[in-house]
Design a binder for these strands. Structure first.
Lengths: 204, 204
DNA sequence: TTGGATCCATTTTTGGATCCCA
DNA sequence: TGGGATCCAAAAATGGATCCAA
């Protein structure tokens, strides 16, 4: 099996008519094909028994990542209470299986090829980078610096909006416990970071 | 308008085929009929502009309440952090419009009559009772006494399970921050308390 | 290029309550 | 009888990501 269309047929999943409106399709396809538990939402990783998180990675014809990678939602209250070690983000990123998917507008969706998976476990240096970014981000949140918490912050880990509409708001509280209505956000790995990860894998 | 069937016809809502499986139907019917905002879930009360919470109250042919009244869900962490004054429960109960609905198995659903609404605002004594029960309940939670937190606790306000299935669990943390998987619970007004409320209204 | 915006599926939570057996 | 269990609808949260304008 090397193309999306074949895998979908084998898995019994219909191909989306408008792929650009079915953004999570590939993720679900690969998850089911690899037998991830259906209720893995409840767990921290897709394969709880292995502690492995599964991520599809859109790449161009040269194998370079085209997009940033979603890690997990950001909960203002919880993340201030927990450091990097005990964070949801670290748990998600402890062991990730990246599945490259050939992804370019000029390739028909069903024809896009599935690449050789890359198993990522952060090196000490990579974890230090992640930790530093996490601390910087959470530090700003702790200081109430939500205005300056843009996607510019962080070398490898960043925070960006995560919602169906820009008008979406979720309720939280500031450091003093006062109610706060904020835009839902999430952690993402920068494209340059995942590019480095797959490059290293090629050399190994 | 005096019966459920008529109001449903006017409101354009279909009558449920199996009323006993559509437990929230009457609440939604009355809400819409009285023009409560559709997104009142997001607000603390059904009529934010008035600060009024709407509750249907099943009563027997003599006008006596037949069931306890749901107030709001119980969040272990949040309720320990907030006292009665700042509690969700107090906000919900500050001003309630009870709409009695004739409710007995031997009366055909559509024929059940709608009674004269009762506007409830706690007297000093009633609020003292509510506060005492709330403090007792939250006190047990704070001490980690979830085992003894049964529906027996509280004179007018009680806590009971609130879930689709008995196996449902929601994640929380204990006082030390350790993860905890607990049965979802909610605050309820005891039937005897709402009975007292409607009795007082008759006398006024 | 990439930061901000958006799209779909699924699960969980919340709000509306009543059911029912020991 | 009333404490514990349950039922439905709708909203919110989460997980899967990619789109797109500047």
């Amino acid at each position: 099996v090397s193309a999306i269309g074949e895998l979908a047929a084998i898995s019994g999943m219909e191909l989306p008519k408008e792929p650009k409106r079915a953004k999570g399709y590939l993720g679900r396809l690969i998850e089911r094909a690899l037998g991830a538990p259906a209720d893995s939402n409840a767990a921290i990783t897709d394969f709880p028994a292995l502690g492995v998180e599964l991520k599809t990675l859109p790449v161009d014809v040269d194998g370079r990542p085209r997009e940033s990678t979603f890690v997990c939602h950001l909960n203002l209250k919880l993340c201030v209470e927990s450091d990097w070690e005990s964070s949801r983000a670290r748990e998600k990123l402890a062991c990730v299986l990246f599945v490259p998917i050939e992804s370019a507008r000029d390739i028909v969706f069903a024809q896009r090829r599935i690449g050789v998976p890359v198993l990522f476990r952060p090196t000490l240096e990579q974890e230090a980078l992640l930790r530093a970014d996490y601390d910087e981000i959470v530090g700003r949140i702790g200081r109430g610096d939500l205005e300056t918490l843009t996607a510019h912050v962080g070398q490898v880990l960043q925070v960006r909006p995560k919602a169906a509409r820009g008008s979406a708001r979720t309720r939280s509280t500031d450091a003093d416990g006062a109610p706060l209505s904020v835009m839902p956000r999430a952690f993402y790995l920068r494209t340059a970071f995942t590019a480095q990860i797959v490059q290293s894998a090629l050399l190994a």
